[in-house]
Design a protein around this nucleic acid. Structure first.
Lengths: 215, 215
DNA sequence: TTGCTATCCTGACAGTGACAAGATGACAGG
DNA sequence: CCTGTCATCTTGTCACTGTCAGGATAGCAA
């Protein structure tokens, strides 16, 4: 394991059908494509194998079963999830509240760009949440939110219930927005253009911070 | 259709295997039980038929296919969903903000009591959202939220963007809380006893109303 | 009694995930 | 160069799924 050659698989690496070269990474890519096109409820392990141009039983040698594959995919999802938020934050004012808003907009960005993957990460029972690698990745995403709030409240939410309540509120807001948007249930927001929508969402996110030096 | 004898099916109504008497309602009950025990991702139409003590092809005569059954079940879910919220509101102070909070707590109550059904209603692609009966039921649930906000803002959110923003915020908050709670991702809230948890959630819900006569 | 029809069953089909067993090729030791 | 070893991948099979076709049953009206 851990032989993920960082996406450099594919053309040039294999000559025959056997010993693909980097089938594990290819399967993860194929699984993501399968997830994006079929949705999580019509996801098929055999479809993934077909996408990777490999027999239906090949994935079992790299991931034990479908749960193993989806657990690995969810792990990658959480890493990219945090990346999307941080990328948003880098192009935002270096001010705690603006940073929190940017993180929240990144949260929604990720969900809208990868709705099925988002559902796999947050709403599905298929990934093994007790898998240590996945648990670490999702915990890292949560820790990031905690730190964003801490930067505003100047108190560690882990020790201050009021600050932790802010964390819960901020999380619930952005998660609710994301989940309802990808469900197509927020016509009011979806009918707006992106800048307006983000302005409204920023407003909604920031009204939730009860503590800290409110401007 | 429409021959739902309001749950009075079962013992006493049938004598042979044929002409169950109220198989449609029995199948809906069985489907809900199947959903609650297996979860939405392991839901099986044949399992529903087995629960109802009927052949695997019997459901097709009352609901065309699995989507038909799940659409009907989601419709019932939305009706009970609104009922749960209104029940909460009846035992709450007759004051707009308290009523909104009660509605939100009912929202979360329903999700925690029927997690798989909640997911079917909000996160699943299986029900046919274009089905007019289901669309009406889910629209009624949304209208209820709109009216709860209208009672606070004294403005119709349909004509006032600021009030509609309050609707989006309130919805996102309670939906995010509900979804994250049934996903088991809010350890902070789940570790609390029910009164404390509801106090925190009430606080979170009510800090979102920007408009109206704030006390 | 004779149809008629809604209701329910049996049987079959392709598709699914998981498992067993065989085929292939890379690679190390002689 | 040859041989054995082993991870990798394939083929074949199983039980299970949803859907469809066709047959069986019973209520009911004429």
């Amino acid at each position: 394991m851990d032989n993920i050659k960082t996406g450099a698989h594919g053309a040039g690496a294999r000559k025959t059908n056997y010993h693909h070269g980097d089938l594990r990474a290819a399967l993860l890519d194929a699984a993501e494509a399968e997830l994006a096109s079929k949705g999580i409820e019509a996801f098929s392990l055999r479809g993934v194998a077909k996408r990777a141009g490999v027999s239906h039983a090949a994935p079992a040698h790299h991931f034990n079963d479908a749960q193993g594959l989806l657990t690995a995919l969810a792990t990658i999802g959480f890493q990219r999830f945090v990346d999307t938020q941080e990328k948003r934050q880098r192009s935002a004012p270096r001010e705690p509240r603006a940073q929190l808003a940017a993180s929240g907009l990144g949260y929604v960005d990720f969900a809208m760009a990868n709705p099925a993957l988002f559902r796999l990460m947050f709403s599905s029972q298929k990934p093994d949440k007790k898998d240590p690698v996945l648990a670490d990745a999702s915990a890292a995403a949560f820790d990031k939110l905690v730190k964003d709030i801490q930067a505003i409240a100047h108190i560690d939410p882990h020790t201050d219930p009021v600050a932790m309540t802010d964390v819960m509120a901020a999380w619930a807001i952005v998660h609710g927005l994301a989940d309802l948007l990808i469900a197509g249930r927020m016509a009011f927001l979806q009918s707006m253009n992106k800048p307006d929508r983000e302005a409204v969402m920023t407003d909604i996110i920031l009204r939730n911070c009860s503590s800290g030096p409110v401007g």
